[in-house]
């Protein structure tokens, strides 16, 4: 197969572009990685650029010896796994019926759903609701109130709508009921989108510190992100919000420690993506089923 000349030029340009993008998105990460293994003086004197200077592990040892850190990690893992399954289940069960053209009530439910994207009663009513359900200081307060993100539902529905009607009709002729069609035909065909939305949900829960701040009182259940936030945020937020900063807020943790915490909290969730990519194989399903 011969590529045209202009396509060759494009390809070169493309490679350069991608290299630039890779660099500017990767560099801060490398920089922080290097910082986390360097000495405090090296960081302060701007001597760290790509590689650790005065290599040492003190930042990491001081974090991993904290029991709260590990406890937080365990909680985050628990929230993320259970929350992702719950979220995916609810998202699919809402998105699939809405993707069927002749599903009665589809339009009403869609509008009913989209409305909630824009109107909310604020934090206090939600807090009172969760508190009345007796969910304060439980995992439910973290994974349930944000279980369905309407954006995800709409995206998943769009994907479902792209599945050829012929395949569904064939299933009906074969005598499958509607749930069987979903589980035997639609879901196997929708692995890329399920993986993508699963990732979206997982990342959202992984990064969510706010629910924990609001709904949890005891630190046994705190996710690790709350720990991270406290280390990185310090008092920047207080000052930015216009409040006077007091003496207790002015001590800043060493940058090496901040960097190490960011590494420890970010790397696990980053590692999830390559596993999901295997579902992104071009033209994987629709073609293969037709053939």
């Amino acid at each position: 197969m011969q590529d045209s000349k202009s396509y060759k030029i494009f390809k070169t340009f493309n490679v350069i572009c991608m290299a630039c993008i890779t660099f500017i998105t990767l560099y801060p990460f490398i920089y922080m990685f290097a910082q986390s293994f360097s000495s405090a003086q090296a960081v302060i004197n701007n001597r760290v650029h790509f590689l650790p200077v005065d290599f040492n592990l003190s930042a990491y040892t001081s974090i991993i010896t904290e029991s709260r850190f590990w406890n937080g990690y365990r909680n985050t893992l628990l929230f993320t796994t259970t929350g992702t399954f719950l979220g995916l289940f609810l998202t699919v069960s809402l998105a699939y019926p809405l993707s069927r053209d002749d599903f009665p009530g589809k339009d009403v439910i869609l509008k009913f759903m989209v409305f909630t994207m824009f109107f909310s009663g604020g934090l206090i009513p939600l807090y009172l609701l969760v508190s009345n359900l007796g969910w304060i200081d439980t995992i439910w307060a973290i994974i349930v109130p944000n279980a369905i993100i309407i954006f995800n539902v709409l995206v998943m529905r769009t994907f479902f709508m792209g599945i050829p009607q012929a395949l569904i009709d064939a299933g009906e002729i074969d005598g499958l009921n509607q749930l069987q069609i979903l589980s035997h035909i639609v879901i196997p065909l929708s692995k890329p989108i399920i993986a993508t939305i699963g990732l979206f949900i997982a990342v959202q829960i992984w990064n969510d510190w706010f629910s924990a701040l609001i709904f949890l009182n005891m630190d046994d259940l705190y996710p690790v992100t709350l720990f991270l936030r406290n280390i990185v945020m310090g008092s920047q937020m207080t000052a930015a919000s216009g409040q006077a900063v007091d003496s207790s807020a002015v001590t800043t943790l060493p940058q090496t420690l901040q960097a190490a915490t960011i590494m420890l909290v970010t790397i696990p969730i980053l590692a999830v993506y390559p596993f999901i990519q295997k579902y992104f194989v071009q033209g994987m399903m629709i073609g293969s089923i037709k053939g």
């Binding site: 934090l123 206090i124 807090y127 009172l128 508190s131 304060i136 701040l213 609001i214 009182n217 005891m218 630190d219 709350l226 720990f227 936030r229 406290n230 945020m233 310090g234 008092s235 920047q236 937020m237 207080t238 919000s241 409040q243 207790s248 807020a249």
Partner: peptide, 20 residues
Amino acid sequence: QPVPEADYTTKRRIVLNSGN
């Protein structure tokens, strides 16, 4: 009940407003 200092104002307000 430890609350991260960066968000203490938010939490305190929720606590006082909700009556809990």
